[in-house]
Structure formats: structure tokens, C-alpha cells
């Protein structure tokens, strides 16, 4: 057994090639350690996001089973065309983000900036379409609490079946969840785009194409996560029994 109180090892060990990289923070031993720690930290953060949206999905599951007819007619009020376009837009933005990460890995500064800008634009398009949908809900009096009327569900003007007043009231639960879920998702998009704007400026200055790209990688993880949430929201909110 070694008998020093705290045995030490030589500070300069054989493979300290990156030891003095400017982005290596003082409390990390190696660049790999730093990269893996921040990637792990990001995943833990996404874990909290899973549980954050998890609460909403649980509520959705319960109420959908309780008030299925209300959920069907509520869902039919949403525009499937806009919903599908938005899904495609978000998948595109995930792709551009992934390509952004790839450009950073390849150390191509201009390509990185380009892909990030594309991601921002696609994110903006998504939010624009979303805002248009919200506006339409407002006009149709489908915003629970603020501006709501059961008129469309008790006396439908289109081919939808009329609901008894009791069940028609329950469409408020559907729309509450619709706004809570898509609203939380949109909030994540807004935060994401704000961060992207900063990243673009820094990327233009070459911050992520000099070998250190953890920030871009981690932001990519966040963006893809937001995409995944939408991948679930789309069928759950827009596609309930479209065949009826």
C-alpha cells in the first residue's frame, strides 16, 4: 500500500495532448471528461423535460378516456392541413439542426451558420402557423376560460354530430389541454429560437468550429427533444378518429 496521506499522481501524464485547450475549464481533467459531463448533464435536463410534459400527457390520457366524444369533435375543429404542414416543418428543422451539428463536427463555419439560420426560419414558420391556429380558435370562441362557447358543439353547422350539452361542456377540457400542451411546446420553441439567435452570432465568430462544439451538440439535443414532443402532440391532438 502506498503510504502517503494522499498519494498523488504526476500532473503531466503521458497523453495530455489537449491539456491546454482554451475551452477546457479548470476543474476538468481532460477534454473528454468535460464533453461527456456536459452531454450527460444535458440528458439529465431532458429527463426533467420528459417528466414535465409527462404530467400533461397523463392528464390527456385520463380525460380522453372519460370524454371521448368531446375529444373527437374538439379534434375535428383543428386544421389537419396546418397540423401536417407544421409537423413537416418541425421535422425539417430537426434535420437542419442535425446538419448544423454535422457542420460543426466538420469545422465548416459558414455551413454551420447557414444550417442554424435555416433552423431559426423553420422554427419561426412553425410558430407563425401556430399563431394563426390560435387566432382561429379565438375567433371561433374555442378558448376555455377567456372566450368560449359550446354553440359549435351543441348546434354544429357542419357534418359533425351534435353533442348533448353535458358532453359539449367537456370540450373545454380538450381545448384546455390543447392550449396547455401546444402552449408549453411553443414556449419551448420560443426559448429555443432565442438561444439559436445567440448561437448563430457566436458561430459566425467561429466559436464552435475550432474543435469545441459541446454547446451546439447540447442545443441540438434540446431542439430534437422539442421535435419529439410535437411528434406525439400531433396524432394525439389532431388525429382523433378523423374517419368519423
Amino acid at each position: 500500500m502506498d503510504s502517503h496521506v494522499i498519494a498523488t499522481q504526476p500532473v503531466h501524464d503521458a497523453h495530455e495532448a489537449h491539456a491546454h485547450a482554451p475551452y477546457l475549464r479548470h476543474h476538468f481533467e481532460t477534454v473528454e471528461q468535460q464533453r461527456e459531463a456536459s452531454s450527460f448533464g444535458m440528458w439529465l435536463f431532458l429527463l426533467t423535460e420528459i417528466m414535465f410534459f409527462g404530467g400533461l400527457f397523463t392528464a390527456y390520457l385520463i380525460y380522453r378516456n372519460w370524454y371521448y366524444p368531446a375529444f373527437v369533435v374538439g379534434s375535428h375543429q383543428l386544421s389537419i392541413v396546418l397540423g401536417t404542414i407544421n409537423t413537416a416543418v418541425l421535422i425539417c428543422s430537426s434535420f437542419t439542426m442535425a446538419m448544423g451539428v454535422y457542420s460543426a463536427e466538420m469545422k465548416r463555419r459558414k455551413a454551420l451558420v447557414g444550417w442554424l439560420l435555416a433552423t431559426i426560419i423553420l422554427g419561426g414558420v412553425f410558430l407563425g402557423i401556430k399563431a394563426d391556429e390560435y387566432h382561429e380558435k379565438w375567433e371561433k370562441h374555442h378558448v376555455p376560460g377567456l372566450n368560449f362557447s359550446v354553440q359549435d358543439f351543441t348546434h354544429p353547422t357542419d357534418a359533425e354530430p351534435a353533442l348533448p350539452l353535458d358532453m359539449a361542456q367537456k370540450t373545454q377540457v380538450y381545448f384546455s389541454l390543447y392550449f396547455a400542451m401546444t402552449g408549453m411546446h411553443a414556449l419551448h420553441m420560443v426559448i429555443g429560437i432565442s438561444i439559436l439567435l445567440v448561437l448563430v452570432v457566436k458561430a459566425w465568430g467561429g466559436a464552435y468550429t475550432a474543435g469545441h462544439m459541446t454547446t451546439i451538440e447540447n442545443f441540438g439535443l434540446y431542439w430534437h427533444f422539442v421535435d419529439i414532443v410535437w411528434i406525439f402532440l400531433f396524432p394525439l391532438l389532431y388525429l382523433i378518429s378523423r374517419h368519423q
Binding site: S39, G54, F95, L221, H224
Partner: peptide
């Protein structure tokens, strides 16, 4: 998305476990 865009296919066991833990806890809820 998780496997390829988020590189989980190429990630460490711990990261895979982390993702699994998230979905497991959600299922518990």
C-alpha cells in the same frame, strides 16, 4: 429521432440508461 438525430445509438451505456429511466418514470406516473 432519439437514436440517430440525438446520437443515442452511438452514445454511452449511461446515456442510454438515462433515457430509459426517463421513460420508465413516465410510465410509472
Amino acid at each position: 429521432v432519439i437514436l440517430f438525430f440525438m446520437h443515442i445509438k452511438y452514445s454511452s451505456r449511461l446515456t442510454k440508461l438515462t433515457v430509459a429511466a426517463g421513460f420508465f418514470t413516465f410510465l410509472v406516473l
